[in-house]
Nucleic acid binder design. Structure first.
Lengths: 73, 73
DNA sequence: ATCCAACCCGAAGTTTAACTTCGTTAATAC
DNA sequence: GTATTAACGAAGTTAAACTTCGGGTTGGAT
């Protein structure tokens, strides 16, 4: 239905909020700009593979958690 | 310990084998070359976001399944 | 009311990961 | 011996990911 990028972005936004950090703090941890984090959360683009790993590490989560969407098997 | 790319590649290789198709057949379904599938399975690089989605679709799996590794929480 | 923090949202430019295209090698099976 | 499947390198191309500007909005302090 929705793109993966959109769903991933929303999922990231929620997990980051739950973790209690700002886009800027996540950006620093992942070594990206705030704008990039914003773009990723809005589904403008997905992160490249290396940054997927860094994002999961920053939030202290396994990568698969970032792809755990509602309504999915 | 191992890179995400390596673990992802191995996971993909297993899931593809379980699904019973060749690299070439997956490549056709995803609109990539066989060499690219080979590179991804060997962890040379990870797929871009759009192709992540296509790979999961081709194997009729949710994306998160591709990141379900052994020994992980 | 205004300052500030956090974030949204384009547009235009840059970088480099992802991808392709060659070619070679090797194992298995028929 | 020849298909099939896949590993593996190197060199070149493409476009997704990322940056850098800019301006705009919201909500909560002071």
């Amino acid at each position: 239905m929705n793109h993966l990028k959109i769903r991933f972005g929303k999922r990231l936004q929620k997990l980051r909020a739950d973790y209690g950090i700002t886009q800027e703090e996540l950006a620093n941890a992942v070594e990206l700009t705030v704008e990039s984090i914003s773009n990723i959360e809005r589904g403008v683009y997905g992160p490249k593979f290396d940054n997927l790993e860094k994002i999961a590490a920053a939030l202290q989560l396994p990568v698969k958690e970032l792809f755990e969407f509602d309504n999915e098997t």
